[in-house]
């Protein structure tokens, strides 16, 4: 579901970027908006002039980053993942009323039950890192999706690397 939002939001940004430039590119931006579906472009442009509302899920997604990535069959946090989680913890300390769900995901190259366990372990390692940085554990719910919700749809290493991930969703 978040994938849809990312797509929509990417389109939003695109439209916004175009509309703030010139009138001609705004037209081009309109086409970009159409490709996401039935959403009217005027509506998109209208809501987006101000950028994401600080403290909103969109703000988190755009300015902090909601996804981190894991190595094959691993739940250890890589340094790039820790950088993202540091920013997430900072954002969460700024908005102490926000609760999050951490989704664990795997690529399609494992068996179903094992991937459910591995993805749970990934979500748990994200949670424990955030808790170590001072985020109250009661604000963090974890959920494992195993290999059920891939982000990239390809059947190659590039796609699998994008699917071995932890996604933080602001509730």
């Amino acid at each position: 579901m978040h994938v849809k939002w990312i797509g929509l939001f990417a389109a939003l940004l695109f439209v916004a970027a175009c509309t703030t430039a010139t009138d001609e590119t705004a037209t081009t931006g309109g086409e970009g908006g159409v490709s996401t579906g039935d959403t009217g472009t005027t509506e998109i442009a209208a809501t987006d002039f101000a950028g994401p509302v600080p403290g909103s899920p969109e703000d988190f997604m755009v300015n902090v980053g909601n996804s981190i990535y894991f190595d094959l069959d691993k739940s250890v946090l890589r340094s790039d993942a820790r950088n993202t989680l540091d920013r997430q913890a900072e954002w969460l300390s700024r908005y102490p009323n926000k609760a999050i769900s951490v989704e664990g995901h795997c690529d399609e190259r494992g068996t179903r039950e094992y991937n459910l366990a591995l993805a749970e372990r990934r979500a748990a390692s994200v949670k424990s890192y955030l808790v170590a940085l001072g985020v109250d554990g009661s604000r963090i719910r974890t959920i494992s999706y195993g290999k059920e919700r891939p982000y990239a749809l390809g059947h190659n290493e590039a796609a699998w690397a994008q699917n071995r991930r932890g996604v933080t969703v602001v509730n």
Partner: peptide
């Protein structure tokens, strides 16, 4: 069944 908690199944 399997119960998973805190990364341990």
């Amino acid at each position: 069944l399997t119960f998973a908690e805190d990364g341990n199944s």
